[in-house]
Structures are given as C-alpha cells and as structure tokens.
Amino acid sequence: MSLPLEHYLIFSLLLLSLGIFGVLARRNAIGVLIAIELILNAVNLNLVVFSRTVSSTPETGQIFAFFVIALAAAGAAVGLAIVMAIYRSRKSVQMQEFNLMKW
C-alpha cells in the first residue's frame, strides 16, 4: 500500500459522488450509462483497498471486483442494447423524453 487507506477511500467517495451526479443529472441515456460505470469503478476500488488492508483473506476483494467487472460489462451491454432499441423507435436518446409512465 503506497498511500494511506483514507486517501483511497476519499478518492473513491468523490468518484462515487461524480457518478451519482451523472446518473441523476445526465440528459443523455448513454451519459447515464457512463456515469454508472464510474460508480461501479469507485465501488471496485473500495473493495480492493479494503480487502488489502482489513480483510484476513486479501483475495476476497479482488474476486468480488472481478465479478463486478463482469456484471458491469453485462449490464452495459444490455443497457446499450435497450438504448439502441429506444433510439430506433423514438429517434432520441434524451432522458426527458422517456416519460411514458407519466400520469
């Protein structure tokens, strides 16, 4: 460990915040997906750092991170497939136009 634990944690927290901001605030659907990736990466970093310092089995965090990466990829794939489908029918990927569930 090069840096103190807290620094990694602060960094991942800020990255998480940025990601949350993007998910909630991005107009473009793909922009939202990008922000989701940010969140997942922040989480991954947290996992790895913690397993490295606190856990008795250091590989636990990394394996968890592997799975997260795999699932993130899967999620991204399916998400983008959906975006494609929506784009095809509505000719737009702007989030504010996806309001079919409006009252």
Binding site: I69, A73, A76, M84
Partner: peptide
Amino acid sequence: YVGAVLTLIIYAIMLT
C-alpha cells in the same frame, strides 16, 4: 473495461 465496455459505449455513441 477499457477494451470492451468502453468500445461498446463508443459504438453506441456513434450509432446515436
């Protein structure tokens, strides 16, 4: 991440 996911995202961006 960089190699596959990001590429996928770029594809999607390009397509839309």
